[in-house]
Amino acid sequence: MKAVVLAAGEGTRLRPLTADQPKAMVDVDGQPLLAHCLDRLADLGVEEFVIVVGYLAQDIVDAFGDAYRGIPITYTHQEEQLGLAHALLTTEAHVEDDFVLMLGDNVFDANLRTPVRRQREKRVDAAFLVEEVPREEASRYGVCATNQYGEIVEVVEKPDDPPSNLVMTGFYTFSPAIFDACRNVEPSDRGEYELSDAINRLMASGSTIDAVPLDGWRVDVGYPSDREEAERRLRESSSDLESRAEAGIDGSRR
């Protein structure tokens, strides 16, 4: 599969860390935030990165060039910050088949292979990695409702009164059908073309979306305190891998 990474954001909530650089270039444990995303995707064996850039785009292009870990990079540009569905549409000409989508402001150590396997089964049209969070935090995310089979039946974007505490983590697999759904959404009250609205349109057209529970951890780096939390978790994971290696236990990532 190809991997689409959305990295066009300014990161106003991360200031002063983003005073003179895009959110994707914020240092997290010694490397840019975007590099953590690309490393996890490279571990999955993706064949190409399609990175959406916007704010201070040239900083990202200069830093990553035309390949990362030997995997070619194609860049698309979101000229205006009009939402995730709008950003995703900029990649349509470069995606011909099922693909992985990752939001470029997340750090993962989790079961990313599971949604990819579900997508390849062709039983479903999409698969999302989801997690339960404290209800008071759910309003930061796209909140999911599921049926008895573990399939997503509704997504609500950043609701004031979340209907559940099950949220999307920013890691998805899709078929190209998502592009038609993105084209047909209207601007939300926030003035953005929401990915959640496109997902709801996709389901309304008959598509089946699996909810895959997170096994491991992820940090959505939205605030400076989130960056500190991501660094703490990365160091703990690194220490655990070293301990397992010394004990002769296979410490390879999921």
Rank of each mutant, 00 (worst) to 15 (best):
E186G: 11
I178Q: 08
S164Q: 01
E157Y: 07
A177Q: 13
Y193F: 14
T173I: 12
A181G: 08
M168H: 07
D180W: 04
F174W: 06
E192S: 15
S164I: 03
A181C: 12
D180V: 13
C182K: 02
V156D: 01
A177T: 15
L166R: 02
Y172V: 07
N184T: 06
P187H: 09
P159Y: 02
P176Q: 04
F171I: 08
D180M: 13
D189P: 10
G170W: 02
P163G: 06
D161V: 11
D189A: 14
V167K: 00
S164Y: 03
R183N: 05
Y172N: 08
D160H: 03
D160M: 07
P159V: 00
D160L: 09
D180K: 12
P187L: 11
N165K: 04
E157G: 10
F171L: 05
V167R: 00
S188T: 15
V167E: 00
F171N: 09
E186Y: 11
A181V: 11
D189L: 12
P163M: 03
T173G: 01
Y172F: 14
G191T: 11
G170C: 07
F174N: 06
P187G: 05
P163R: 01
I178D: 01
E194H: 10
Y193T: 13
C182I: 05
D161A: 11
F179Q: 10
F171E: 00
A181S: 15
S188Y: 05
A181E: 02
F179P: 05
M168V: 12
T173S: 10
T173L: 09
D161C: 03
D180G: 15
D189Y: 10
N165C: 11
F171V: 08
P187V: 15
E186A: 15
R183K: 15
T173K: 09
E157K: 07
T173H: 02
N165R: 01
P163H: 05
P162V: 00
D161K: 05
S188Q: 09
N165G: 03
S188G: 15
E192I: 15
Y193N: 11
V185E: 01
Y172K: 08
D189I: 14
E194R: 09
F179A: 11
I178P: 06
D189M: 13
P187M: 04
T169K: 05
P176G: 13
Y193I: 11
A177C: 10
P162A: 03
Y172T: 04
R183P: 12
S188W: 09
S175L: 14
E186P: 03
F179Y: 14
S175K: 14
P159N: 02
S164K: 01
N165S: 15
S164P: 01
F174E: 05
T169W: 07
P176F: 07
D160G: 11
F179M: 11
T173A: 03
F174G: 02
S164F: 06
Y172H: 12
N184H: 11
R183V: 08
D161S: 11
K158M: 10
D160R: 08
R190M: 15
L166H: 01
N165E: 05
V185T: 07
G170Q: 01
T169H: 09
E194M: 14
S164A: 09
T173F: 03
G191R: 00
N165H: 12
V185H: 06
E194T: 12
C182Y: 06
P162H: 00
E192T: 13
F171M: 06
